[in-house]
């Protein structure tokens, strides 16, 4: 869910808000890139802090998802440095294309990320039978020798 939203939202966001007046959008200006990068890093940081701060195991896993959303957005941003049109061969050059390599790479990482999350949530379901509150410190205490 998170990944799909973030993947689509950056080009749309820049398309509508930053380039309303400049007709064919070519590349992101440096300041826009820097601002987007700052938001992306903030997302990663918020997710990371959430992993430590949140006490419930589910919330920790969701925090990790927020962090991975930030990382994915970073790849999308890296891909959009030179332009953000989808590179589709049509015969005429429509504008500056986004770099497809980071997007292809992050697609793999998204798949791996959600399979790991699914696996972890199954583990949490099993644990929740004996630890209904899912407080990490409690689970840890009762399962550490």
């Amino acid at each position: 869910m998170f990944e799909l939203c973030s993947l689509a939202s950056i080009p749309l966001f820049t398309d509508r808000l930053l380039f309303m007046t400049t007709p064919p959008p070519l590349t992101l200006p440096m300041t826009a890139q820097a601002i987007l990068a700052a938001w992306v890093f903030a997302t990663v940081l918020i997710g990371f802090v959430g992993i430590i701060w949140k006490r419930n195991l589910i919330m920790k896993i969701l925090s990790m998802d927020v962090m991975s959303t930030g990382v994915i957005a970073f790849y999308v941003l890296v891909a959009a440095r030179g332009g953000f049109l989808a590179p589709i061969v049509t015969g005429t050059q429509a504008g500056a294309y986004a770099d497809p390599v980071p997007q292809a790479v992050i697609l793999t990482a998204i798949v791996i990320g959600f399979s790991i999350q699914a696996l972890m949530l199954v583990g949490v379901m099993k644990l929740s039978r004996d630890n209904p509150t899912l407080e990490t410190s409690e689970i840890e205490q009762s399962n550490t020798p």
Partner: peptide, 9 residues
Amino acid sequence: IWVGLRYLF
């Protein structure tokens, strides 16, 4: 499960 989860996390 907990030890595995901790490792994976």
